[in-house]
């Protein structure tokens, strides 16, 4: 086994082989691999976006994944929720997701929470992990996790989509947060939204990449920036997000403007 230099456990021969193609990625290497193994990530919902994120995080070798998602699979989830299966209709989504991820990578500890984020469980969910991936279809859940992540000093990767558009941002301690963009749950957002699975999967995969960057330092994350992708026109933008001292969630943590 490789000696543990980061306090996160060594890598067994099977893991060295499994991850051999990514250990040669510039800036990642064995050190990045050990950092991933030492990390725990909460994925809030494992639908089209969160399921893709969880898939690539498991494949990459994150040590522990906590999947939070309530409810049972419906037939009309299957155009985008690729961790699920047709025989699984009517079964808990989170259990199916965990089974697939354990099959993909048995070195990952996958824990299931058959609940969506609420005011009652958000603090507990966040406290048990090093980073949060927000992929719920409701702003109330995303904003709850954002507030807890900021309060507990944990990074948050927020990935969202609608129709042909994907958006991704990262919240890191001391930087602008999701509540800087959305001070309150927007009044016009509807639970059901137009979605092609490929669009949801695209932003989910990029959320996994963003998570890996934050956990390993292998690249600069989107801290203070919002990335948007119009998959219809195939154009993307990266917008700067101003730190808002007026933000009720992170305002006091943001540095004063010069």
């Amino acid at each position: 086994m490789i000696a543990d230099e980061q306090g996160g456990g060594g890598l067994a021969p099977d893991e060295l082989d499994r991850y051999s193609w990514q250990r040669s990625v510039a800036g990642f290497g064995d050190d990045g691999q050990r950092r991933l193994k030492a990390a725990a990530v909460l994925v809030s919902r494992v639908g089209g976006v969160g399921g893709a994120a969880a898939t690539y995080l498991a494949a990459a070798g994150v040590g522990r994944l906590v999947l939070a998602h309530a409810g049972n699979l419906r037939r009309n989830d299957l155009n985008r929720q690729t961790l699920m299966s047709t025989p699984g209709i009517g079964r808990p989504r989170v259990e199916q997701a965990a089974e697939r991820l354990r099959d993909l990578n048995p070195h990952v500890v996958v824990e299931t929470v058959p609940e969506n984020a609420t005011a009652d469980n958000a603090a507990r969910l966040v406290a048990g992990c090093d980073l949060v991936v927000g992929a719920a279809p409701l702003f109330a859940e995303r904003l709850l996790l954002n507030a807890e992540a900021v309060r507990q000093g944990r990074p948050l990767v927020d990935a969202a989509m609608y129709d042909a558009e994907a958006r991704l941002m990262s919240v890191v301690p001391g930087g602008p947060c999701l509540a800087c963009l959305y001070p309150a749950p927007p009044p016009h957002w509807r639970r059901e939204f137009p979605v092609l699975g490929a669009v949801a999967g695209t932003v989910g995969a990029l959320a996994a990449l963003e998570t890996i960057k934050i956990l390993t330092g292998c690249g600069p994350p989107l801290a203070g920036r919002l990335w948007t992708f119009d998959t219809a026109a195939m154009t993307c933008r990266t917008l700067t997000i101003p730190a808002r001292r007026e933000c009720p969630v992170c305002g006091l943590a943001c540095p004063a403007p010069p």
């Binding site: 719920a136 279809p137 969202a160 957002w189 939204f193 949801a200 948007t228 917008l239």
Partner: peptide, 10 residues
């Protein structure tokens, strides 16, 4: 000018 209504599809 970029006008972006909020989205939260997951």
């Amino acid at each position: 000018l970029l006008l972006m209504p909020p989205i939260a599809g997951g």
